[in-house]
Protein backbone atom coordinates (compact mmCIF):
# COMPACT_ATOMS: atom_id res chain seq x y z
CA UNK A 1 0.00 0.00 0.00
CA UNK A 2 1.28 3.36 -0.97
CA UNK A 3 1.96 6.19 1.43
CA UNK A 4 -1.00 8.54 1.76
CA UNK A 5 -0.47 11.89 0.05
CA UNK A 6 -1.95 15.38 0.19
CA UNK A 7 -2.84 17.26 -2.97
CA UNK A 8 -2.46 21.01 -2.49
CA UNK A 9 -4.18 23.14 -5.11
CA UNK A 10 -2.60 26.57 -4.65
CA UNK A 11 -1.49 29.19 -7.16
CA UNK A 12 0.24 31.49 -4.69
CA UNK A 13 3.88 30.38 -4.20
CA UNK A 14 4.03 32.15 -0.83
CA UNK A 15 1.05 30.24 0.44
CA UNK A 16 2.40 27.07 -1.05
CA UNK A 17 5.64 27.57 0.82
CA UNK A 18 3.89 28.56 4.04
CA UNK A 19 1.65 25.50 3.84
CA UNK A 20 4.64 23.30 3.20
CA UNK A 21 6.49 24.87 6.17
CA UNK A 22 3.45 24.48 8.35
CA UNK A 23 3.05 20.82 7.46
CA UNK A 24 6.73 20.26 8.16
CA UNK A 25 6.46 22.08 11.48
CA UNK A 26 3.45 19.95 12.37
CA UNK A 27 5.33 16.76 11.61
CA UNK A 28 2.72 15.68 9.15
CA UNK A 29 5.39 14.14 7.03
CA UNK A 30 3.20 12.99 4.18
CA UNK A 31 4.04 13.52 0.58
CA UNK A 32 2.72 16.76 -0.73
CA UNK A 33 1.75 17.14 -4.35
CA UNK A 34 1.16 20.69 -5.50
CA UNK A 35 -0.74 21.85 -8.55
CA UNK A 36 -1.06 25.52 -9.44
CA UNK A 37 -4.36 25.95 -11.21
CA UNK A 38 -7.80 24.39 -11.40
CA UNK A 39 -7.25 22.68 -14.72
CA UNK A 40 -4.02 21.10 -13.58
CA UNK A 41 -5.75 19.90 -10.43
CA UNK A 42 -8.41 18.12 -12.51
CA UNK A 43 -5.77 16.72 -14.89
CA UNK A 44 -3.86 15.38 -11.90
CA UNK A 45 -6.91 13.84 -10.28
CA UNK A 46 -8.36 12.37 -13.48
CA UNK A 47 -4.90 11.42 -14.85
CA UNK A 48 -5.33 13.53 -17.91
CA UNK A 49 -3.21 16.05 -19.82
CA UNK A 50 0.36 15.99 -18.47
CA UNK A 51 -0.63 13.48 -15.79
CA UNK A 52 -1.74 10.59 -18.02
CA UNK A 53 1.15 8.50 -16.69
CA UNK A 54 -0.26 8.62 -13.16
CA UNK A 55 -1.97 5.60 -11.70
CA UNK A 56 -5.64 6.45 -11.69
CA UNK A 57 -6.23 4.18 -8.75
CA UNK A 58 -3.96 6.22 -6.59
CA UNK A 59 -6.02 8.95 -4.99
CA UNK A 60 -4.81 11.40 -2.34
CA UNK A 61 -6.02 11.15 1.23
CA UNK A 62 -6.82 14.87 1.25
CA UNK A 63 -7.21 17.66 -1.24
CA UNK A 64 -6.50 21.16 0.09
CA UNK A 65 -8.32 23.38 -2.36
CA UNK A 66 -7.90 27.12 -2.76
CA UNK A 67 -10.89 28.88 -4.32
CA UNK A 68 -9.31 31.66 -6.33
CA UNK A 69 -7.32 29.84 -8.97
CA UNK A 70 -6.28 30.50 -12.56
CA UNK A 71 -8.12 28.75 -15.44
CA UNK A 72 -10.69 26.93 -13.34
CA UNK A 73 -11.59 28.16 -9.88
CA UNK A 74 -11.80 25.99 -6.83
CA UNK A 75 -15.56 25.62 -6.90
CA UNK A 76 -15.50 24.42 -10.50
CA UNK A 77 -12.82 21.92 -9.53
CA UNK A 78 -14.91 20.73 -6.63
CA UNK A 79 -17.98 20.35 -8.84
CA UNK A 80 -16.05 18.27 -11.35
CA UNK A 81 -14.50 16.14 -8.61
CA UNK A 82 -17.91 15.36 -7.12
CA UNK A 83 -19.29 14.39 -10.53
CA UNK A 84 -16.57 11.94 -11.28
CA UNK A 85 -17.16 8.39 -10.14
CA UNK A 86 -13.52 7.87 -9.08
CA UNK A 87 -13.14 11.04 -7.10
CA UNK A 88 -16.57 11.81 -5.74
CA UNK A 89 -15.79 10.45 -2.25
CA UNK A 90 -12.45 12.28 -2.04
CA UNK A 91 -12.01 14.35 1.16
CA UNK A 92 -11.80 17.94 -0.07
CA UNK A 93 -11.02 20.77 2.39
CA UNK A 94 -11.41 24.26 1.08
CA UNK A 95 -8.50 26.34 2.35
CA UNK A 96 -8.91 29.88 1.26
CA UNK A 97 -8.49 33.52 2.28
CA UNK A 98 -12.16 34.25 1.73
CA UNK A 99 -14.69 33.90 4.49
CA UNK A 100 -17.52 35.33 2.35
CA UNK A 101 -20.77 33.67 3.26
CA UNK A 102 -21.53 32.95 -0.38
CA UNK A 103 -18.28 31.10 -0.88
CA UNK A 104 -18.80 29.04 2.27
CA UNK A 105 -22.36 28.22 1.20
CA UNK A 106 -21.48 27.29 -2.34
CA UNK A 107 -18.52 25.27 -1.14
CA UNK A 108 -20.67 23.14 1.12
CA UNK A 109 -23.42 22.90 -1.49
CA UNK A 110 -20.95 21.41 -3.91
CA UNK A 111 -19.90 18.84 -1.34
CA UNK A 112 -16.86 20.24 0.45
CA UNK A 113 -15.92 18.21 3.52
CA UNK A 114 -14.66 21.22 5.38
CA UNK A 115 -14.10 24.93 4.92
CA UNK A 116 -11.17 26.68 6.52
CA UNK A 117 -10.17 30.30 6.19
CA UNK A 118 -6.46 30.79 6.07
CA UNK A 119 -5.74 32.95 9.11
CA UNK A 120 -3.58 36.01 8.45
CA UNK A 121 -1.77 35.41 11.67
CA UNK A 122 0.93 32.85 10.99
CA UNK A 123 0.70 31.30 14.42
CA UNK A 124 -2.96 30.61 13.85
CA UNK A 125 -2.24 29.37 10.32
CA UNK A 126 0.29 27.01 11.71
CA UNK A 127 -2.15 25.69 14.25
CA UNK A 128 -4.84 25.27 11.62
CA UNK A 129 -2.60 23.29 9.32
CA UNK A 130 -1.39 21.15 12.20
CA UNK A 131 -4.93 20.24 13.20
CA UNK A 132 -5.87 19.63 9.59
CA UNK A 133 -2.97 17.26 9.11
CA UNK A 134 -3.68 15.37 12.29
CA UNK A 135 -7.36 15.04 11.62
CA UNK A 136 -7.39 14.15 7.97
CA UNK A 137 -4.15 12.25 7.67
CA UNK A 138 -4.08 10.48 11.01
CA UNK A 139 -7.58 10.24 12.47
CA UNK A 140 -9.69 10.15 9.37
CA UNK A 141 -10.18 6.89 7.51
CA UNK A 142 -10.08 7.85 3.81
CA UNK A 143 -12.35 6.16 1.28
CA UNK A 144 -10.72 3.15 -0.31
CA UNK A 145 -8.78 3.47 -3.54
CA UNK A 146 -9.92 1.68 -6.64
CA UNK A 147 -12.57 -0.77 -5.67
Amino acid sequence: MKEPVILLVEDNPDDEELTRLALEDSNVANRLFVVHDGQEALDWLFCEGSHTERDPCFTPSLVLLDLKLPKKNGLEVLEAVRKNEHTRRLPVVILTSSKEEQDVLRGYNLGANSYIQKPVDYAQFLEAIRQLGVYWMVLNEPPPHCA
Binding site: N12, D14, D15, S97, E100, K118, V120, D121
Partner: peptide
Amino acid sequence: FSHTVAHDLRSPLRALDGFSRY
Protein backbone atom coordinates in the same frame (compact mmCIF):
# COMPACT_ATOMS: atom_id res chain seq x y z
CA PHE B 1 -14.33 44.23 -5.01
CA SER B 2 -14.76 43.30 -1.37
CA HIS B 3 -14.41 39.67 -2.32
CA THR B 4 -11.18 40.46 -4.06
CA VAL B 5 -10.01 42.48 -1.11
CA ALA B 6 -10.83 39.63 1.23
CA HIS B 7 -9.07 37.06 -0.80
CA ASP B 8 -6.22 38.85 -2.44
CA LEU B 9 -5.09 41.25 0.26
CA ARG B 10 -4.88 38.57 2.86
CA SER B 11 -2.49 36.31 1.01
CA PRO B 12 0.42 38.78 0.86
CA LEU B 13 -0.24 39.61 4.51
CA ARG B 14 -0.01 36.00 5.43
CA ALA B 15 3.22 35.80 3.53
CA LEU B 16 4.56 38.87 5.38
CA ASP B 17 3.44 37.51 8.70
CA GLY B 18 4.38 33.93 8.06
CA PHE B 19 7.84 34.50 6.68
CA SER B 20 8.72 37.14 9.29
CA ARG B 21 7.69 34.67 11.98
CA TYR B 22 9.59 31.90 10.33
